[in-house]
């Protein structure tokens, strides 16, 4: 039942995706023309502040938006046109071929069912096996994500586990039906730093073992660099820059990316004052006509405020949307 992709056909392909909530002048435009393609075994990090539209974009990939959301563009995941798929086909895609990991494992699990049951019901739904077989598979999954004494943990309720353990269980749940695409929505944000690293290493190992395509949404540039092959920097519902990880760190072209990198803490600049990006992310219900970053950008001129920049090629697989590309360096 898996939709095996031919070598070069992307597992995830998004073309000019727009998502808005509400109508007319007051509409909140959360995603404004995102395009990217992701091949098998590739990890795309989506980096952005809260309110940049990254979570909405991710949920669109699984058709998980509320009914009043309006979408435009095309989203193809594992060969399936997600936005136009009938509900039943979409349901079969979810949890089997495409799985999702959520930010806060405490609230992402149902509090009144055991972890084992919650993993097993996904397996029973998609693989059409009995409860015993599903429970056995659930135990193997808990072992796969390195939860000690997995058999006993099956009978645990979510509140009986630690945060890190719950996120491991969440990953086990996502992997229940051997997905080929994994969507991760800030899966390490709610965890302690030491646990964060363990979860990242675990995800990286499982991603390589299972050869999954992963879209990893985060606001933490350190996490994004750790896990991704490529990074898309999202601002006001657009990718303002997309590049392979080395190019993004060493040769970033967009002033916003530069600002993000400059505002992270790292050892080499000990004692220096941290830079911040002035201002706040734009109101998605009233986006400026030009570049959305212009009000916060020190290089902005009249052209930036009047005309939205188109994506321009900066290097191999490296694209940025800016009128002053060299200014970001």
């Amino acid at each position: 039942m898996k939709h095996e992709a031919i070598i070069d056909e992307p597992m995830v392909e998004v073309r000019d995706l727009h998502v808005s909530f509400g109508k007319g002048a007051g509409a909140v435009r959360a995603v404004n023309g995102v395009s990217f393609a992701l091949r098998k075994g590739e990890v795309l990090g989506v980096l952005g502040e809260s309110g940049s539209g990254k979570s909405v974009m991710l949920r669109t990939l699984l058709g998980l938006l509320p009914a009043h959301a309006r979408t435009e563009g095309t989203v193809t995941v594992a060969g399936q046109p997600v936005l136009s798929l009938p509900p039943d086909a979409l349901r079969r895609l979810r949890g089997s071929t495409v799985a999702m990991i959520f930010q806060e494992p405490m609230t992402a699990f149902d509090p009144v069912f055991t972890i084992g049951r919650q993993i097993a019901e996904t397996i029973m739904r998609h693989d059409r096996v009995g409860r015993d077989a599903a429970m056995k598979r659930a135990q193997e999954l808990l072992e796969l994500v390195a939860i000690p004494s997995a058999k006993g943990r099956l009978a645990n309720y979510p509140h009986e586990m630690s945060g890190g353990m719950r996120q491991r269980a969440m990953i086990a749940l996502a992997l229940a039906c051997r997905p080929s695409v994994l969507l991760a929505d800030e899966p390490t944000t709610a965890l302690d730093v030491t646990v964060q690293i363990q979860i990242l290493l675990l995800l990286r190992r499982l991603q390589a073992e299972l050869d999954m395509a992963v879209v990893f949404v985060t606001h933490d540039i350190g996490v994004a660099v750790e896990i991704s092959d490529r990074i898309g920097v999202m601002y006001a519902g657009r990718f303002v820059e997309e590049a392979p990880i080395e190019a993004l760190v060493d040769a970033h072209a967009h002033p916003y990316t530069r600002g993000l990198l400059a505002s992270t803490v790292h050892g080499q600049r000990k004692g220096e004052r941290l830079e911040t990006i002035p201002g706040a992310p734009p109101n998605l219900a009233a986006l400026p006509p030009g570049c959305a970053f212009a009000p916060r950008c020190r290089h902005a001129d009249d052209r930036c405020r009047a005309e939205a920049p188109e994506p321009r090629v900066v290097g191999p697989s490296h694209v940025a949307r800016c009128h002053h590309l060299s200014a970001g360096r």
């Binding site: 949920r59 699984l62 998980l64 349901r91 079969r92 895609l93 979810r94 949890g95 089997s96 799985a99 999702m100 959520f102 992402a108 699990f109 149902d110 019901e121 996904t122 739904r125 998609h126 749940l173």
Partner: peptide, 8 residues
């Protein structure tokens, strides 16, 4: 959302 994402 998790339940829906699981394809139940």
């Amino acid at each position: 959302a998790t339940l829906r994402a699981k394809g139940l």
